[in-house]
Design a binder for these strands. Structure first.
Lengths: 215, 215, 215, 215
DNA sequence: TATGAATGAGTATTCATTCAT
DNA sequence: TATGAATGAATACTCATTCAT
């Protein structure tokens, strides 16, 4: 209904427009991650960005879509950071460690923003009303999982990781990264970021490839 | 706030009353975990429980408190399950493994209900308005953490776990359990529960005590 | 989306509730017909009925549905008035005249309310957003049309009305009634209601059965 | 209000400007008549005309005025068509018939545009906020009414139409034309335009001058 | 003239909570 | 205890209109 000129529909923005849009995204990121999605009003975002209440809708069709765009953007950056950190020449296990460490560092550096992704955990919060933001979130997780699964499989073929469902290993790797990042964000940890990254890297390595001492 | 005759103030319930309350808790659990806290309306809960809209407030002072009660109850049961699974005679590392496996199994058996605790991750969603539900959640996590930290410390003293901040190890243990449980709930995994529990147990053991093969 | 306990869904109302609902309908009728649908705010209706802003939604799912219910109710009453006025023994032409006159009288007596049906004319005003209120309106008109078409056909068979598409005659009959009613409501006419009814009755009779003097 | 340099104040337009203005009027006509006044957004009109959102205000001071201009223009054309169709030599009754038939034909030929005038019926929709568009509409109707009243009066003096309030007869004539036009536009009728015009002409003639057969 | 951006008042609807019975 | 009704604050979204360029 109203398929024609709906707002924010593939608009072309001027340079100034792009800037504005970014301002809004930034403001939204800060607010969403500090007060949560539900407790952040569109009006808050506008106020924070110093613009009038209606302007968000020039750039984003809905609050949810604004959120989704934020998530996509974060994810893109994270993947770039991971890619940059992984030595293409290295063995898969090492690559996993590098990706892991890079993720921890990246998330630490973008603490504020990354709190957003905690929502990945409670997808349903948003999917409740049949929105397709849930899709964005689900897709996103899948991408990482696929990546890690591939690496684990490679590592297994090279005998670096014991047999077993690669899917399981992947869940372990991804989950642990996000757990530590979360703890860091929450202030429950009081460590240097690099130290933490190293620790998580080690943790994952041991969990994937370690020999357990006699039980 | 609520100094006088406010409703639901340590009420004494008749037998039927207790039953009703449980009905409400059950209905709430299902709805909260499937649609999320924010998307579940008091009215929904009442409808699901087959009672009139006003009745919730006879048993619970607020929606938040209803939620909190649910969380407390789950947590209590989980701790009982853990306690039951941990051999008091065993060494700390083994106890961690036992607790870990018990947790996975328990969470699997209470999938529906446990999705609730995913919210722990996004505490801020609720704490936004200065409620004290956030406190309940925070406390809860702390309890587990304290437990595990103690066990890790013991294990370190016995040389079963390498030196290092016990807090860090604890985050790793707890995070991994919840990650796997989450994945299980989400259907991303297709394994037998016991198998999964064993896997997670092994994972934690290796991560805590494993020797990494030469890099 | 939210198929379960949506508001105002086949609610059973207490006696008091039914009364309230009527109060709201009454208030709405007055406002809609004096200020138009678009210019009447839900808040206005509540204020006029002396209740809180949210209450409408206990009785009606949406503003549109409230409107539709109003229309249905008016229509029902009109049809009753028509039925009561038409002598079952009389010939079809006479019956048309009786129905016509009764309609004029009825609409005059319910001026305020009936202004609502002017909207029948601009169905699209409401159907714009894909609502199904438009359906209600369209259906309604059809009912009358069907009735009249039948009567015209009968009259033709009895030689009381010349041959020709009964549909056309029906449009003429219905249109003329609503035109006169509209004019009456608007104050452009300054006649006694019964006089007007007689005039319209005569007009329709002549138009249907009259012989035109040589051209 | 709008004493100084307000936009669209008796502007003089370049040739291109006039063209643009017409484009806007055309687009508006289509949209208004298909979706209704209220459901047509300025933005829609611009999109349909292929211009930027702000431009309308260079040519028209307000949405209402744009609408009014459209109405005025239609009306002018209709009156011209009527005038052209009415034989100045003919008797008043014949002139009414000619005007009637011309109106039906004209409205049929401008279906899309003419749906607009249906709004005349629900003036209040627009007049709600004290606008003066209502005035335009009211004036318009009056013009026709005055015309017809004069013709009827003449006809009565010549004994072509029985005595009775000319105002009443006028309402009948005008109403019937618009009823049939409306039905035609709505697709409820499936007749040839000329046929319809003839029918309406006949209908009006009989209603005005016909002798009713014995009741 | 023309454009894209910005403004801000206006409003339907939701929903936790309270109340009378 | 239980119910249906009532309250009212809160908020996403719309859209006519204005503005800077």
């Amino acid at each position: 209904m109203n398929t024609s000129t709906g707002p924010a529909e593939r608009r072309t923005h001027t340079e100034q427009g792009i800037e504005r849009k970014q301002q809004l995204l930034d403001a939204a990121a800060v607010l969403f991650s500090s007060k949560g999605y539900a407790n952040t009003r569109i009006a808050d975002i506008c106020a924070a960005a110093g613009v009038a209440k209606g302007l968000v809708y020039w750039y984003f069709p809905t609050k949810e879509e604004l959120f989704a765009e934020l998530v996509r953007s974060m994810r893109l950056q994270l993947r770039r950071a991971q890619a940059a950190a992984m030595d293409p020449e290295a063995d898969p296990l090492t690559r996993i460690r590098q990706g892991t460490e890079a993720s921890v560092v990246f998330m630490a550096e973008h603490r504020a923003y990354f709190a957003l992704l905690d929502v990945e955990r409670s997808q349903d919060e948003l999917s409740g009303r049949g929105s397709d933001v849930a899709d964005v979130l689900r897709e996103g997780s899948d991408v990482y999982a696929t990546d890690v699964v591939r690496l684990v499989r490679d590592a297994q073929q090279q005998g670096l990781v014991p047999d077993g469902d690669p899917q399981l290993y992947a869940v372990g790797v991804l989950g642990v990264v996000s757990s530590f990042s979360h703890a860091l964000r929450n202030g429950s940890l009081d460590v240097d970021v690099d130290e933490l990254a190293a620790f998580v890297g080690g943790w994952v390595m041991r969990a994937l490839a370690g020999e357990t001492v006699a039980r």
